Amino acid sequence: MAKIDKRFQILFSEEEIQLLKKESDRRGISQAELLRLALRNEVTKKSDLTKWKALKALAEVLD
């Protein structure tokens, strides 16, 4: 576990690590799983936005 914390410290400040631990404990999932879910949600949002923009552009062409 110390190895994981060391990698997290490269990415996050000590305060962010504590918030991550607190939120993962509250949700009953691991810190890694919480980060994975957050990343997946961010990627999905961007993909949906890209799809929406493509549909909007297509609708403008068809009008």
Rank of each mutant, 00 (worst) to 15 (best):
L37T: 03
L34R: 06
K6F: 08
L35R: 12
M1E: 09
E14H: 05
L58Y: 14
L49Y: 09
S13D: 08
Q31W: 01
L20E: 03
E15I: 00
K56T: 07
V61Q: 10
D48S: 04
D25T: 06
F8Y: 15
F12I: 01
E33I: 06
L34T: 05
I29R: 07
L37Q: 12
A2V: 14
A57E: 06
E42I: 02
R7V: 06
S47D: 05
K3E: 11
L34N: 08
E23N: 14
T50Q: 07
L49G: 01
R40V: 01
K51Q: 11
D63K: 10
D48Y: 09
Q9R: 15
S30A: 06
K22Y: 08
E33L: 11
E14N: 04
I4G: 05
K46I: 00
L19N: 14
E15V: 00
V43R: 01
E16A: 04
L34K: 05
A54Q: 13
K21R: 11
K53M: 10
R26A: 15
T44H: 01
K6W: 06
T44I: 05
A57V: 01
E15R: 04
V61A: 06
T50C: 05
L35P: 04
E23L: 12
S24A: 13
A59S: 14
E14L: 02
A38D: 02
